[in-house]
Amino acid sequence: MNRYLKLVHLEVHRFRYALFSLMFLTAAIQITGLVHTTQVRVKGWREAARLGEHSTRNFSFADVIGDLQFLFAIPILISIVVLGLYVFLIWYRDWIGRDKFAYRLFTLPTVRRNVYMAKATAIFVFVFAMVSFQLLMLLLERQLFNWMVPSEYRMSSLFAEAVASNLVFVRFLLPLDGIQFVVYYGIGILAVFVLFTAVLLERSYRLPGIVYAILYVAVCGAAIGGAVYLNLYNYFYPREITAIRFCIYLMVMGFTLTLGFRLVSKKITV
């Protein structure tokens, strides 16, 4: 196995307990919420049936997920915050602490960009692992829902419907459109690289580096944001605008990676 993959594993390994904790937290909050809401619903329907009222419509798993917008968003937001902080900590933890692992990491016999890419890859693995875990949880939760709700009150729903009924899922985490997923997460990946390079600016130039880093993030942020909200439909065809956006992203990506690799291999101070 090559050293890049070994480094990825190393980084994943170092974060494993935090990752599992986030997963556990997500599972705990969501299952608790789902069980409670489903119980309330079933109780209401039973009551209505006892009084001879007929409800207009049975309820589905998607309905319950739709009821749980806020609760489902909490663990996701916590995960986003934790992973967002870890984008920085994945570097700084190698400088702080008794072990100052950077001394070892940067003297490993491999090109330094592998260290950079491995840390980035590890972050992406964490993000996608959390998203995948959320998908698994939804499957499990649907099963749980089916067990809890008697079939006479239950309406079937598509898996995608359940995803679509939670705004956090459909707007950010799991857009139903595959292209949208690729674009969203592509921009996310780009953002991680920009932040990494900003961290390396600080690590290379210290105090003045903070200023460079802030400027760099501002410029890249403006370019990426500008590309997202690029409104040139008065002149360009939609596909050309897509191409322009893509070029801007590629340029930011190219520049960020080039600068990042250069900093990590030539400028960084341990």
Partner: peptide, 11 residues
């Protein structure tokens, strides 16, 4: 091989 002034291995 480099032997820094501390043990650079995660605790």
């Amino acid at each position: 091989s480099y032997i820094p002034d501390h043990l650079a291995i995660p605790a």
